[in-house]
Design a protein around this nucleic acid. Structure first.
Lengths: 140, 140
DNA sequence: CAAAAACTTGACTATTTTAGTCGGGTATAT
DNA sequence: ATATACCCGACTAAAATAGTCAAGTTTTTG
């Protein structure tokens, strides 16, 4: 039950941008230094974020990336989907024909996994990037 | 964001037992046939379920496994833990010393991942095996 | 214009995890 | 006795993951 590091770093990098950008583009080099993430790896991640319209890029000197939406509007779910991190915890259910374990009938636990996925999905759907920043140093 | 098949099959097999046992032991062979799970694989899974006191075994002819708790009492979380399926979606946090990304300070997204884990954990904690059986054919 | 900063992109690879099998046991009811 | 069913460690093929590399292109600034 793990999230891949790409998704994790993506959220981390975007949170960094939300904190440090003041309308200016934020370079991957800066994010890399601040968050301790490999620059090469960040490049790969931002490629996907760009393709999925989470950020836009500015080339050349003083270039970098800019959030397309405000942190208040940006759902965490959108970030995960951009990194191909689907919330589908279990294989059974692809299509409705031969759904579970190769059989044509729904398996005994089918609805339970559906519920689980829905539960997790809702969490990511309701959380916005701005929510991460609030409690940065709050709590205990 | 996937559950491994061992956990999935474990839940499935235990649900099967809950449905088909009438105080008698349920053999893995029967579960294998009914649920379409490899017998050899089931053996591996039940070894862990036994070690973690989810089931007890009866050897010899007419042997099999018996649920230790009633389906109403058996938390799904206990099943997952028995299969080493920890709900810890992200690497940062092992110990409190050098927690995130090798750094000594909590990463910017740390609390968020904690919340996520808590959210998922609660789900598994509150769901009992008996809950899976109720809505087997219910809903839509 | 030249050079440097920074984005662009596909391919590649080592490591780890996963899913599942195999073989050779042991216990027990009939 | 023997068949059934649990017991258990070791093994392996395949897939996923994490991350690197190479070779660009674009744009700003001096």
């Amino acid at each position: 039950m793990k999230l891949n590091t790409k998704s994790r770093y993506a959220v981390m990098a975007l949170a960094d941008m939300a904190v440090f950008s003041r309308d200016n583009a934020v370079s991957l080099r800066d994010i890399s230094l601040r968050q301790g993430i490999s620059l090469l790896y960040l490049e790969q991640i931002f490629l996907k974020l760009k393709k999925n319209n989470i950020v836009k890029s500015v080339r050349g000197i003083n270039g970098g990336y800019i959030l397309i939406k405000t942190p208040k509007e940006l759902k965490i779910l959108d970030i995960l989907l951009a990194l191909d991190q689907k919330v589908k915890t279990v294989g059974c259910k692809k299509d409705s024909k031969k759904s579970c374990n190769g059989k044509s009938t729904k398996c005994i636990t089918h609805n339970f996994w559906d519920e689980l996925d829905f539960h997790i999905n809702s969490f990511f759907e309701n959380k916005k990037l701005s929510d991460l920043l609030k409690n940065k140093e709050a709590r205990h």
